[in-house]
Simulated assay, not measured.
Amino acid sequence: MSNTFTKHTDRQNLTLCSDAEQASIYTARQIADVILEKQKQGERAILGLATGKTPIKVYQELIRLHKTEKLSFHNVISFNLDEYYPICSKSIQSYSYFMQHHLFGHVDIQPGNIHIPHADCSSDRIPFYCTDYEEKIRSFGGLDLQLLGIGRNGHIGFNEPGSSFDSTTRLVDLHALTRKDAEGDFGTIENVPYQAISVGIHTIIKAQKIMLLAIGKDKSQIISKALRGEISTEVPASLLQTIPHVEFILDRDAAALIGD
Rank of each mutant, 00 (worst) to 15 (best):
I204Q: 04
I204G: 06
I204F: 10
I205V: 13
I205D: 06
I205P: 11
I205A: 09
K206E: 15
K206H: 12
K206S: 14
K206R: 13
A207Y: 11
A207R: 05
A207T: 08
A207Q: 11
A207H: 09
Q208L: 05
Q208I: 04
Q208A: 15
Q208S: 14
Q208D: 12
K209Y: 04
K209S: 13
I210H: 00
M211E: 10
M211Q: 13
M211R: 06
L212A: 15
L213V: 15
L213I: 14
L213W: 13
L213Q: 12
A214C: 14
A214D: 15
A214E: 13
A214V: 15
A214T: 11
I215R: 09
I215P: 13
G216I: 07
K217P: 04
K217E: 10
D218C: 03
D218Y: 11
D218V: 09
K219W: 02
K219F: 01
S220L: 03
S220Y: 03
S220K: 05
S220V: 03
S220R: 07
S220T: 05
S220P: 04
Q221R: 10
Q221A: 12
I222M: 08
I223T: 06
S224M: 09
K225F: 08
K225C: 14
K225D: 11
K225E: 14
A226N: 10
A226Q: 06
A226Y: 06
L227P: 10
L227A: 12
L227Y: 04
L227Q: 15
R228C: 12
R228Q: 13
R228A: 04
R228W: 00
R228P: 00
R228I: 04
R228G: 06
R228Y: 02
G229F: 03
E230M: 00
E230R: 00
E230Q: 03
E230V: 00
I231V: 12
S232C: 06
S232G: 09
S232Q: 06
S232L: 02
T233F: 00
T233V: 05
E234M: 07
E234R: 02
E234C: 03
V235P: 02
V235Y: 01
P236G: 10
P236R: 04
P236V: 09
P236C: 11
P236N: 07
A237S: 06
A237Y: 11
A237I: 11
A237G: 08
S238A: 09
S238F: 01
S238I: 00
S238D: 03
S238R: 01
S238H: 02
L239F: 13
L239S: 11
L239I: 14
L239H: 15
